[in-house]
Simulated assay, not measured.
Amino acid sequence: MPNADRPLPGDAPIVAFFDVDNTLLRGASIFHIAKAARRRGLISVRDIVRFGWHQATFLSVGENKRHMASIKDRALELLSGYSAAELVVIANEVFDRDIEPRLWPETVELTREHLRKGHSVWLITASPQIVAQVIADRLGLTGALGTRAETVDGMFTGRLDGPVLHGEQKAVAARDLIAGTDVDLAHCWAYSDSSNDIPLLTAVGNRVVVNPDAALSKHAKAAGWTILQLKRSSIRDAQRTVRREARVARPARRGK
């Protein structure tokens, strides 16, 4: 009998996509970046109050487009004139001080379960790409897809390099990631808390909603999607589901 822990010949590659804010991490990662920037004297008390307001609202009612636009515009303005290297240093500092203690252990363990199956695990978030990549690297994940800020000669310009990775754009990014490979989204997985990610969740064959907002909870129940509340019994059920239903996979191959 073949070893169930090793990919079998011909097994299709699989990608698991994880949202970050309120799915992998309690709260918004950009708020913790703002706090670190304040400690370094890069932003004002007024700015940190604005980011704090966004954080409190996000935790209580979830994302909305107005909040996203406000936080995006101010974040880009604040980045202008600083280097990508500086943001990487800040992001690593923030991971150790603020993000790691606020990670949901249950969701992190699900990323491990997918990795053990041979799946690629990608973070997919509206947060800055550099910040998302630091989180992915520190957790040993495959990679990260995030909102890209334009740089010229290593310095941020205060403009975006592409769209904010939010809503439908996450589904677009997931399709772009697998373009030219033999990955089939019908075999892939996605995890999110937000109704804004319904396009991404719909694009994959296996979707798990994590501590969903009201709109996503309603949609998930109607669609028969798995709903995961972060408590011990639920996480055990989710792990068993991945072990039982997720196929062992081999790495993706690019088309010729």
Rank of each mutant, 00 (worst) to 15 (best):
T23D: 04
V204K: 00
E106F: 05
P199H: 03
P2A: 08
I33L: 13
T157M: 05
E168F: 05
P212D: 07
A215N: 13
G167E: 03
A34N: 09
A144G: 05
L123A: 02
A28W: 01
W122H: 07
V248I: 15
R247K: 14
A179S: 14
I130V: 15
D19M: 12
S80A: 15
F95R: 09
R39L: 13
V45A: 13
I30W: 04
D137L: 04
W189Q: 11
N196I: 06
K218E: 14
A34L: 05
Q169D: 13
K35G: 00
Q133P: 03
A36Y: 00
E63T: 11
M155Y: 04
A69V: 14
K170I: 13
R26C: 09
A37Y: 02
A179F: 02
D176W: 02
D137F: 02
L177I: 11
M1H: 10
P128Y: 05
I14S: 02
L110G: 08
F95D: 13
L185C: 08
L216K: 04
H187W: 08
G10D: 08
I198H: 00
A126V: 06
E93M: 04
V152N: 01
V61T: 14
R250N: 14
A144P: 10
R116G: 14
G62N: 10
L79Y: 11
P7A: 09
T147S: 12
T57P: 00
H67G: 15
S194M: 07
L185I: 11
V88I: 13
V204H: 00
R112Y: 01
R207L: 04
L200Y: 05
T125M: 00
A37M: 15
K221S: 15
R39F: 02
R247T: 15
K256Y: 08
S70T: 14
S70K: 12
P212K: 04
S44G: 05
R6S: 11
R46W: 05
R38S: 06
P9H: 02
N3T: 07
V172D: 07
I135H: 04
D47E: 12
I90W: 06
P7H: 01
T107N: 02
M68D: 12
T147D: 01
P163H: 02
L25N: 08
L115I: 14
S194H: 13
G167N: 06
L78W: 09
A179L: 08
T151H: 00
I48A: 06
H166M: 10
A238E: 05
H219M: 04
S29H: 02
L230A: 06
K218F: 02
G52L: 02
A173P: 11
F95N: 10
D11L: 00
G27D: 10
V242R: 00
R46D: 15
A36K: 09
G118N: 03
D197L: 08
A174R: 07
E77Y: 08
